[in-house]
Design a protein around this nucleic acid. Structure first.
Lengths: 228, 228
DNA sequence: TTTAGGGATTAGGGATGTCTAATTTAAGTA
DNA sequence: TACTTAAATTAGACATCCCTAATCCCTAAA
């Protein structure tokens, strides 16, 4: 049963929103995510339900079925392998792979996926630090890291992962050398959630609006944080 | 002005048919090529004409405008670079690249094209021996080679190019080691155009139906052919 | 318990790309 | 010249995916 590229985008969006929410995903969230109107989403949900990709409670939102999850993970696997491949073999920068992967993920064959996975030596994460679901499509373990926006001043953390959902976020972070593996010191938490961190080789201060800090997933540096 | 993948397929089909025909390309030829019905083609031709991609004489067929040719060559460049890249860097066999390239050619960015061209060292031909239109999009010189189906018995020729329009042809030739650069001896020209050639390391006889031999473009081996 | 507000759905329509059936045109034949 | 026929076009319809406007449903507040 072939899915259209558009349907795949809906499945992927529902999967990502599901992980942020835990609960059922609402029509309006999907509409925002995909930049379409609510009635458009409703009619697509009808089709996804017919195909057993989602379960629905009228007026209450949707969740993916086991089948829907399998499809979502396959798409995400495509996306992240493409990002890794473009970065490592075709000189793409960390920030610009997303858009290309977003288009190509719907059009590559299983053979293509297998080939680039082999060329990459079957990697477990993509260049953003996101786990790549493996070919047997196990469910990945619960989202790694904690949002940077949740930390107090003077905490030292290491970036584990950056959400690639928004190219504005990627551009901004790449420009300031905030990538997976980078060590950050939280310098200041200002009103409205603006966070200033020290990053990069020169410990340059970088200010992150809350909506960006929310997408930087980090791990604490265990003992160190106690002493600063 | 973005073109849909479907429009691009029409432009590509018209370009290829144009080269076979010299004259105007007829509706029914396009319909056969793309496996759609004639009315479907007619209505698409209306749209291509609106966009200045083709010129039309009602009931008499179409030809590409300069703009249409530019678009066609861009698509063909994508296609052939993809074939070359998949073959050289992702272990695709010579025969199986076509289908993948046919899908991806519509979805890759200029940056992707530039990257794979660089990775290939700006090649001039693809793995089938077809010229790759360069980035400045000059018109390629008139089709190279002569169809194998036009040769007499006991001629020695070298394969220059194989049409990649039909995967049956590709499979058949790949299986018998007939690829660009292969030297062939025409052994027998039988009734109904069936041609037997000697090919490969062991000079194994291979029989080619006329519709396949038609797609093998060859050059003569100048002096040698006189003496056999 | 009733009601106001907001999110979800239904109703109806547009663009794209496809189809079958009917009609028109070009061009060769008698 | 008139006729026949094959190819091309027009007519009308369907599926997909999108929209705006109108209506419906849930829930929280009075």
């Amino acid at each position: 049963m072939m899915l259209s590229a558009v349907m795949e985008d809906y499945i992927k969006a529902i999967y990502h929103l599901h992980k942020e929410n835990e609960e059922r995903v609402r029509t309006s969230e999907i509409a925002d995510e995909l930049d379409v109107t609510a009635p458009t989403v409703t009619s697509m949900l009808d089709k996804l339900e017919e195909r057993n990709l989602i379960e629905r409670k009228k007026y209450k939102g949707v969740s993916l079925t086991a089948h829907g999850k399998r499809v979502a993970l396959e798409i995400i696997r495509h996306h992240r392998l493409l990002e890794a491949y473009l970065t490592e073999h075709l000189d793409y920068s960390w920030a610009e792979v997303h858009e290309e992967a977003d288009r190509l993920e719907h059009h590559i064959s299983d053979e293509f996926v297998t080939s680039i996975a082999a060329a990459l030596d079957d990697p477990e994460t993509d260049p953003h630090g996101d786990p790549i679901p493996n070919s047997t499509l196990e469910l990945p373990d619960g989202g790694p890291g904690i949002a940077l926006s949740e930390f107090e001043e003077d905490t030292i953390v290491i970036v584990e992962q950056v959400s690639d959902r928004d190219s504005e976020v990627l551009e901004y972070l790449a420009d300031h050398e905030i990538t997976p593996g980078t060590e950050l010191t939280v310098r200041e938490v200002a009103p409205f959630g603006m966070i200033t961190v020290l990053a990069g080789d020169n410990d340059q201060p970088v200010s992150l609006p809350q909506h960006i800090a929310h997408h930087v997933r980090v791990a604490t540096v265990e003992p160190a944080q106690v002493f600063y």
